[in-house]
């Protein structure tokens, strides 16, 4: 299988990538572009650790082959805000959410997707929307609180 070359806009910058066509976007981000905030957790779209925004929508980057994302816009945790001060990031710090922290980029990117479509989610909305993402440290209580805090602008 010969390599493909695609062009993506990643965190606002155009990048040209050459890789095996079925390479998941996840591995391109992590190993070729050194955007290692996006994590590998399961490789099958079950845990959400690799969540990024693809054309503005949160999705698991392990599920998108590089050949299928030519021309698309990708935002990773590194590009969520210029200085790490997105309201969710501030809320995450205020609630001291992370423990091991490994899943938290994905959690924050998913939460950012939620707030984009629903600026004042109920607790039920949060639970439903966030359930694709696993946190093995079980920081769910604080994730939910942090999303509520960010939604209320208490950051």
């Amino acid at each position: 299988m010969s390599n493909v070359t695609v062009t993506l806009t990643i965190n606002g910058q155009r990048k040209t990538i050459t890789a095996a066509p079925d390479t998941p976007l996840l591995w391109v981000l992590r190993e070729q572009l050194k955007l290692t905030g996006t994590k590998f957790g399961c490789g099958v779209g079950q845990c959400g650790a690799c969540t990024v925004h693809l054309n503005g929508e949160p999705t698991q980057s392990c599920l998108h082959a590089i050949k299928d994302v030519d021309g698309k816009q990708v935002t990773t945790i590194e590009g969520l805000s210029p200085d790490g001060n997105h309201p969710l990031q501030k809320a995450w710090r205020a609630e001291q959410v992370p423990q091991c922290g490994y899943c938290q980029s994905g959690q924050i990117m998913r939460a950012a997707g939620l707030l984009k479509q629903n600026s004042r989610p109920s607790r039920e909305d949060i639970v439903e929307y966030m359930s694709p993402n696993i946190c093995r440290c079980g920081t769910y209580v604080r994730i939910a609180r942090a999303i509520e805090r960010a939604a209320k602008g208490e950051v």
């Binding site: 955007l35 290692t36 905030g37 996006t38 990773t76 945790i77 590194e78 969520l80 790490g84 990031q89 995450w92 710090r93 001291q96 959410v97 992370p98 922290g101 938290q104 980029s105 924050i108």
Partner: peptide, 11 residues
């Protein structure tokens, strides 16, 4: 505040 938390919110 835990010293490792900030880095765990920005990748």
């Amino acid at each position: 505040p835990r010293v490792d938390v900030a880095g765990k919110t920005n990748g």
